[in-house]
Design a protein around this nucleic acid. Structure first.
Lengths: 294, 294
DNA sequence: CCCCCGTTTTTTATACATAAGAAACATATG
DNA sequence: CATATGTTTCTTATGTATAAAAAACGGGGG
C-alpha cells in the first residue's frame, strides 16, 4: 500500500553517482552508499538489485562493478519520486491558490480525498500538519474551514515576521568580529551580486536565495519557534508566487538590492541603520504580497 | 469503531439541563436542545431516546415530559466522555512528563499505540498536531525524536512570549478610554483580588485565570500566530505544573500580584511602566519554570 | 574485533472499513 | 408556511491490513 517513492528517488540518485564513476570501476559498499543516498541499506540493496537486473551493475564474487553507463531515460519520472503526502500538498496548494476556494469555504476531507485520488487518512494528516500555517481551522466533529489567503493573513504574517527579523538582525550585529558568520554573510553578498548581474535570466533563483538569507540571519540565535515560523514564510512565498508571476523579475531585483543594503547595515553594526534596512525590506515585501493578493 | 463520547457528554449535559426544570415540565424542541448542547440533532435524539428508555423522559403525543429526576449516578464517567484523541493527549503528556522520556528519546508510533492501547492512526495524528509545540521533531521515513522539556525549550518559549506580550500590552494601552476593554480589565482585576483573598483554598484556580488574562490582553489586536502560540503556553502550564506541584500556592500568589501590577500599569497608559511590569512578570514566570525543570 | 553482506524483524506510509455523528431531505402538524 | 420530528445520506473518528522502508541480527572474512 505504501508507495516505493523512496526507492525510485534513490534509484535516480544512484544513476547520478554512477555517472561520476568509470566504467568497470568497483562500487562503494552498501553502507557507504546508504550514507550517500540518505536511505536505509534495505533500499540501497533494492536499488542495486534493480540495476543489476538492467545490466548497469555486474555482481562478481564480493564485488560490484559498473557494467554499463546508465542512460537518463532509465530514470523514474519526477512524479513517481514524490511521496503521496507530498503530492497531496501540491494538490492542495493548487486547489487553494487557483481560486477554487474563497474565504470561509468548508473543507471536506472525503471530497478532497476523492478529488486528489488518495486515501482520506492522508488528507487528514496533511490538514493536521497544514493547520500551523494559519490558513485553515478545525471544527469539532465537523470538517475544516478555509480562512482564506487574505490581506489580513498577510498583515498578521508580516507583523510577526518583523518582530522576528528585527530581533535576529540585532543579535546578528552583536556578534564579535571573529565569528564565522561574517564570512558567510560575505559569500551571501557575493551570491546576491552574482544573481543581480544575471538577473534577466536567473530571477527565478531568488526565491531559494531569499529563504537561505533570512535563515542565515535567524540562525545566529536559534529559536525553534522562529524556525518554525520561517516554514510558514517559505510556504507562502514558494506557493503563492507560483501562481502570481506578475512583475517577478522586477520584484526580485528590488528585493536583492534591499538584501544588499541590509548586509551593509549589518556589517556597519549600527543598530539604527540595521533597523531601517530591515524595516524597509519587510515593508516592501509586505506591500508586494498585499498587492498580489488584491 | 468511532467511540460514542459525544453522545455520553451530551447525555451528561442533558442531565444538568433537566435538573433545572420541574418534574412534568415539557422539554424544549430537539432543535433548541441541539443548540444548548452544542451537538447535532442526531445526537440529541439519541440522548432523548436513552433517557426515554430509562424513564427520565416520557414521550406523549407530540410532547416530551420529564418523568423522573435523573440521579447523578446515571451520568457516564468522565473518562468515557473523552474522545480517544483526547485520551492520547493525556497519556502522551503523562509519558513525557513522568520522566519516561529524556531528551533525544526516539518516539515509536507503534510502541506508543501499544502502550496507550489505541490505534496507530490516532497516535500518528496526535504527533502531527503536537509537533507545533516544538517538543518533538519528525525524521523522514523514521519515527519522531523527543527533544526534551529542557531549559532551552523554556528559554526559547519565553523569548517569544516576551516579544508577543510586550507588543500586546502596548497596543492595549493605546486603546481609547471609551473602549470596552477597560471594563473587562476591571473585572479581571476583581477576579484576581477575589482569588487572592481566598488564595489558600483556591490557588489551583489560578491557572485558568492566568490563561484568560493573557488572552484578554492579546485579543485587542488579533493575530492568528500569536493566538496559536498561546496554545503552546497554555499546554506548557497546564501539563507541566500538573507534575510539579511544588510551591504552587506561593508561585500563584506571586503571579497574581504581578498581574495586578500589570493591570495598574496598563491603566496608567505609561509605556515605560507597562514594559517594566510586563517584563517583571515574565521574568519571574520564566525563572519559576526553569527552576521546576532543573 | 570491525566491516561487509544476507536474512529476519520491526516500523512507517498508505489504503480501506465501519460505527458514530452531522447534515440534508421529507413529512407532519399547528 | 413555519417549525418539529422522522428518515436517509454523507462525513468524520477510529480501527485494521499490508507493502515499502528501516533497523536489528548473524555469520564470514580480513
Amino acid at each position: 500500500m505504501r508507495t516505493d517513492t523512496t526507492f525510485k528517488r534513490a534509484f535516480n540518485d544512484m544513476i547520478d553517482i554512477i555517472r561520476t564513476l568509470d566504467l568497470g570501476a568497483e562500487l562503494p559498499s552498501e553502507n557507504a552508499l546508504r550514507i550517500q543516498l540518505g536511505v536505509s541499506r534495505t533500499t540501497v540493496r533494492k536499488v542495486l538489485a534493480g540495476m543489476s537486473a538492467r545490466g548497469i551493475i555486474i555482481s562478481e564474487a564480493h564485488k560490484r562493478i559498473i557494467g554499463e553507463r546508465p542512460r537518463q531515460k532509465e530514470r523514474y519520472p519526477k512524479e513517481e519520486t514524490l511521496a503521496i503526502s507530498e503530492q497531496v500538498e501540491t494538490s492542495f496548494m493548487e486547489w487553494m491558490l487557483r481560486g477554487d476556494a474563497c474565504p470561509g469555504t468548508e473543507i471536506n476531507e472525503t471530497e478532497l480525498a476523492r478529488k486528489f485520488g488518495v486515501a482520506t487518512t492522508i488528507v487528514r494528516e496533511f490538514l493536521n500538519r497544514f493547520q500551523k500555517y494559519g490558513l485553515i481551522e478545525k471544527r469539532q466533529n465537523a470538517g475544516w474551514v478555509f480562512k482564506g489567503f487574505t490581506a489580513s493573513f498577510a498583515l498578521e504574517l508580516f507583523e510577526i515576521r518583523e518582530m522576528f527579523e528585527m530581533r535576529s538582525a540585532r543579535l546578528f550585529a552583536a556578534l564579535p568580529d571573529g565569528s564565522p558568520v561574517w564570512k558567510q554573510i560575505q559569500s551571501m553578498r557575493a551570491a546576491h551580486l552574482e544573481l543581480l548581474a544575471d538577473i534577466d535570466a536567473r530571477f527565478q533563483d531568488f526565491s531559494e536565495l531569499d529563504s537561505r538569507f533570512h535563515r542565515l540571519i535567524a540562525a545566529v540565535a536559534p529559536n525553534r519557534f522562529i524556525e518554525s515560523f520561517q516554514d510558514v514564510i517559505t510556504m507562502v512565498f514558494h506557493y503563492h508566487y507560483q501562481w502570481n508571476k506578475r512583475d517577478e523579475r522586477a520584484r526580485n531585483e528590488v528585493a536583492i538590492r534591499e538584501h544588499l543594503a541590509l548586509i551593509e547595515a549589518l556589517e556597519s553594526r549600527n543598530i539604527a541603520l540595521i533597523d531601517r534596512a530591515c524595516r524597509l525590506h519587510l515593508t516592501s515585501a509586505r506591500e508586494t504580497l498585499l498587492h498580489s493578493i488584491a
